[in-house]
Simulated assay, not measured.
Amino acid sequence: MGEEVLSGLYREVFAAVVAASGPVSGVELTRAVGREAEIKNEVEKIRHRAYALEKRGWLLREKNGRFMPAPGAVGRDASPASAGHRRPPGATA
């Protein structure tokens, strides 16, 4: 499975980490996906997505909190965030 199985903001966060030249912080990720990094809530939303991607094996988090792609994250049989999960009708984000 490639990153196409990720939905919406999860895909954007993963793509931003992959495109970076090295490990990135939550603030850098927030800017990379076009959000206001000066607004703490926006940074936390993006960081939450990165944590979810880490938990599912797509990203690695360094001790300093910066994120980088997990080795082999694209194209392996991981259980990616939001993959295959449909919201029930009327559900909100």
Rank of each mutant, 00 (worst) to 15 (best):
E12C: 11
P71V: 12
G34M: 07
G8Y: 07
G57V: 05
E12G: 10
N41F: 11
E36H: 15
E12S: 13
V5Y: 08
S82P: 04
V33E: 07
A15D: 02
A52H: 05
G22M: 01
A78T: 02
H85M: 11
L9E: 11
A91T: 06
L59V: 00
G75K: 08
L60S: 07
I46T: 04
V18M: 07
G26H: 07
G34F: 07
L53S: 06
E36D: 15
E28D: 12
Y10F: 13
R76S: 14
N41K: 12
R56W: 02
G2C: 11
K40N: 04
V5K: 13
V24I: 11
I39W: 11
P89S: 15
R76D: 07
P23L: 04
M1Y: 04
S25P: 06
G65Y: 04
E36G: 12
I39L: 09
E44M: 09
I46Y: 03
K55W: 01
M1I: 00
G2R: 13
P88E: 13
G34K: 10
G75C: 08
N41R: 10
R86G: 07
K45S: 09
L6C: 12
A91R: 15
E44H: 10
V74I: 08
I46V: 15
A50M: 06
A78F: 03
A52W: 00
V18A: 01
